[in-house]
Nucleic acid binder design. Sequence first.
DNA 1: TTTTGCGGTCGATTTTGTCCACTTGAATTA
DNA 2: TAATTCAAGTGGACAAAATCGACCGCAAAA
Lengths: 151, 151
Amino acid sequence: MDKIDRKIVNILQKNARASLKDLSKECFISSPAIAARISKLERSGVIKGYQATINLEKIDFHVKAFIQVQLEPHQKKEFYPYVQQIPNVIECNCVTGDFSEVMEVVFPSTTDLDNFINDIQQRFGKTSTQIVFSTSVNHRGVQLSEPTEKE
Amino acid sequence: MDKIDRKIVNILQKNARASLKDLSKECFISSPAIAARISKLERSGVIKGYQATINLEKIDFHVKAFIQVQLEPHQKKEFYPYVQQIPNVIECNCVTGDFSEVMEVVFPSTTDLDNFINDIQQRFGKTSTQIVFSTSVNHRGVQLSEPTEKE
DNA sequence: TTTTGCGGTCGATTTTGTCCACTTGAATTA
DNA sequence: TAATTCAAGTGGACAAAATCGACCGCAAAA
């Protein structure tokens, strides 16, 4: 992970479809060198994948929310496969605090959200939901700083 | 947004670097047709962009957390530009409930997180933080279902 | 001082993407 | 109904980008 790798990662986080040629211009090395670095970053697991970012409104998912769930320890092994399987759950984390899980979910309407929450409550336990009004920072990567001592 | 567009969106959400050729095979139409559809999806704002997904651990961001912030209405216009500018804030939403904002943040260490929280508290107000232990669903897109009535 | 190997360049080749002319079929209008 | 228009495809020619292989240079290890 040197300076050039960080630059590649930064660019690909902003535009995953950037061509090797573009990257080679930005980084001042040849495109085969870029290709080699990218495949190394992929193999080593630094780059996990590439995903198109979709405007959820445009595909009729108008409601985004955070659902917190209280879970007994033994319920996790049932909960995880369940949420992984639901396409509306776009992120799920185990966290500190009264509620052990925080899910980020999207649904076409509040009715669909309500149905889902009822299902969760029936299967697992108490929930607390925060509905999103607006998003000031859309999910993004962390831009790596240019000067880093550590090689 | 017909069946083919949904298929394209689904594929690009899973692999934003998929080639037109791959897409054309999956969708059974020619690559110029795919190219035309993609640029239409981009122009119409359905596809907002393409981002590489990075393994945060591998780039030494070991701590992920959700920070909730209590904000007076007038503070928003100061808060938004502030959080947008901090690379550690990877998502920020205005939500219902006692705390008006929910931020998702990443930091190298809990010390860095603590410093940030102190800064937020000093600038804005009361916070509540949940530290992430583990992630069962990494941030992902919504996979669109094949059969949809609406054209 | 050799040797080894990583990381790079350059140019040839192959693959991919783009452009253009032409086609088809559904909806619109004379 | 027949003519027109337009959106959305196709296929082939061309341009651009990615990949491959031969080779180079340097730094660390033998």
